[in-house]
Amino acid sequence: TEEYEYTDEQQAREAAREWREKGYTVTIEEHNGRWRVKTG
């Protein structure tokens, strides 16, 4: 599992979409105004 943090929701969603296209399972969670994208 890798985790990436973004301050911008749009960036987080874009990144998540790219990971999904590569076949990863992706979770996005908002935490204190930051967006965490977890792949695994």
Rank of each mutant, 00 (worst) to 15 (best):
R13I: 14
R20F: 09
N32H: 07
G23Q: 02
E2M: 15
Y6H: 03
A15H: 07
A15V: 09
Y4D: 05
T1P: 13
R20L: 12
A15G: 04
V37T: 02
D8I: 05
A16M: 08
D8M: 05
V37G: 00
E21V: 06
W35G: 00
K22F: 04
W19L: 14
E14W: 05
Y24L: 07
Y4H: 09
G23T: 01
E9M: 07
G23N: 03
Q11S: 14
T25Y: 13
R34A: 08
K38L: 12
A16T: 03
E3N: 08
D8R: 04
E29Q: 08
E14Q: 12
G33T: 02
T27D: 06
E21D: 12
A16W: 05
G23I: 01
E30H: 12
H31K: 11
E2S: 13
K38E: 05
A15I: 08
E3L: 12
N32E: 10
G23R: 02
E29W: 13
D8G: 04
E3Y: 15
Y6M: 03
T27I: 12
E30R: 08
E18C: 10
K22M: 09
V26Q: 00
T25K: 10
E3D: 10
N32W: 04
R36I: 15
Q10N: 12
T39G: 05
H31Y: 12
E29M: 09
R36K: 13
Y6E: 01
V37R: 00
G33C: 05
R13M: 13
R34M: 13
I28N: 01
T7W: 12
T27P: 00
K22C: 06
V37F: 03
A12Y: 01
W35N: 00
A12V: 03
K22A: 08
Q10M: 12
E29N: 06
W35S: 00
R34P: 00
T7Y: 12
R13K: 11
I28L: 09
H31P: 00
Y6C: 04
Y24P: 00
G33V: 01
E18L: 14
Y6N: 01
Q11E: 14
T1W: 15
R34T: 10
K22E: 04
R17P: 00
K38V: 14
V37Y: 02
D8C: 07
Q10T: 11
T27S: 10
T1C: 12
